[in-house]
Design a protein around this nucleic acid. Structure first.
Lengths: 253, 253
DNA sequence: CTTAAACGTTGACGCTACGTAAAGGTCAAG
DNA sequence: CTTGACCTTTACGTAGCGTCAACGTTTAAG
């Protein structure tokens, strides 16, 4: 498939100015020029542009991107895996900010008091944390396909209101986890309510529910850092607590 | 609590240059100046800076932020709640990107095939955020949840231009259907071109294409009166003709 | 009390990653 | 043959700072 500059711009969501600029600085040159001097982009350029945009999304300068892509031993798949890690971190930071917003609202309402330094949690941190590359890949190989399927399934049949409702529920789960974890008892009333909500949440993305699968997922949460990072965001040890609550809820323990 | 410029910078994670710049453009002025001309910030300024950084995080220009904060009926809590919603959206976009990265890895490994337009899902959505504010509601009202296609399209992260392109293609399909139907031959050149266009149209809303699914959809068109009504509105028997053409195109008949 | 380090000030120029004309060639359709 | 969509290069403009430079102030150590 070949693209003119406008077609590629529409495909990728950047402007033609951006593509010309990338050509100018030697970051992304067209595959060839037409007889009349039009820029013609091919398959390789599409893929390259995708890489560039991923790096750009992570706030890497075009200069650095150029350097990275020029490297003779540039490994596409390794780069993509690294992107994935960085995106997880970005998400974690976002969720820290969300917690800060929630807290700030509560403090404005006079429900809690807040220290000045708490007010900038999440806003301050940049992407300097790079410690989490140990177990990740193994587990991803193990569970990767499942989650791909799950996310596909989600996108396939859901309406927008479904999607919103699911996100809303996800938020409630976070709040419940906070409450329940404070009791310290995974068999307590709050924890079991948490597990029930989690089941409800699951039904949005799972075609069928079974106790076994629910318990299995709970185990995966603890094993897979993508999930531990997610649920431990606000409460350390939250993932394990959630697992314990679910195991009791499903009667698997 | 009072802060010198360096203290506030450390607290909030911005540089002193940024604080001086914000003073210069009148976005955030210190509470007072010390006898020697040093900038002294107070409690109000800390909270204001937090607001500013939240807005900045959402890619709002300093000019606009200034305008928002100057508004006489600026509601802090409402603003924070709005931030929270935007952050949820940002997270959703991040997760879309993560899914795209996973898919790209799988396609590099040769496990799946990937359309070019899939490669930029999530990356394109910045445009949406801007367009959403202008045209978003319009789109929603106009096409809202009327058609399955529209709601799917929204979920897939399409931009307005994507959506327009898809509608454009839908028009072409209608015209082609008219032409092809006139020949009466579902295996003819026009009919097969029609089926090809229909496949292209599908890639806008389908994550992956398969002949089986395409053929299955064609059967559904005939079975489901909502679709028959749609394709038969200009040409009676158009739906069946389309199905036949697709079945031949996909080799399922 | 002195003195160096740390911290503050105001210019002023530079940079990145484009946006935005301006002035003009090319191509497809009617 | 014209019209409009699409392409080209050239060139100036911008936001949000980073980064000197040149200089005054505060503080802690010797």
């Amino acid at each position: 498939m070949e693209y003119t500059i406008n077609k590629l711009a529409q495909l990728s969501g950047v402007t033609t100015r951006t593509l010309r600029y990338y050509d100018q600085i030697g970051l992304l040159k067209p595959a060839r020029l037409s007889s009349s001097g039009y820029r013609i982009y091919g398959q390789q350029e599409v893929d390259l542009l995708q890489h560039i945009l991923f790096y750009r999304e992570l706030d890497i300068s075009l200069d650095e991107i150029n350097a990275i892509l020029q490297e003779p031993d540039f490994d596409e798949i390794a780069a993509l895996k690294s992107h994935y890690q960085k995106l997880i971190q970005k998400r974690a930071r976002l969720e820290k900010m969300m917690a800060t917003v929630e807290k700030t609202i509560a403090s404005k309402k006079g429900e809690i008091r807040m220290q000045d330094n708490e007010k900038f949690k999440g806003l301050k941190e940049k992407l300097i944390e790079e410690n989490e590359q140990k177990y990740g890949d193994e587990i991803r190989v193990k569970y990767g396909d499942q989650t791909v399927d799950a996310s596909n399934a989600k996108l396939m049949g859901m309406t927008k209101s479904d999607f919103d409702a699911m996100n809303q529920l996800g938020e409630e789960i976070f709040l419940l986890l906070e409450k329940a974890h404070a009791t310290g008892d995974p068999s307590g009333k709050e924890a079991q309510e948490l597990a029930a909500k989690h089941k409800e949440w699951l039904t949005y993305s799972w075609p069928t529910y079974s106790k076994e699968a629910h318990a299995g997922l709970a185990e995966m949460y603890v094993a897979d850092e993508r999930f531990t990072a997610y649920y431990d965001q606000r409460i350390t040890g939250g993932t394990q607590f959630l697992r314990d609550a679910i195991l009791i809820y499903t009667g698997m323990k």
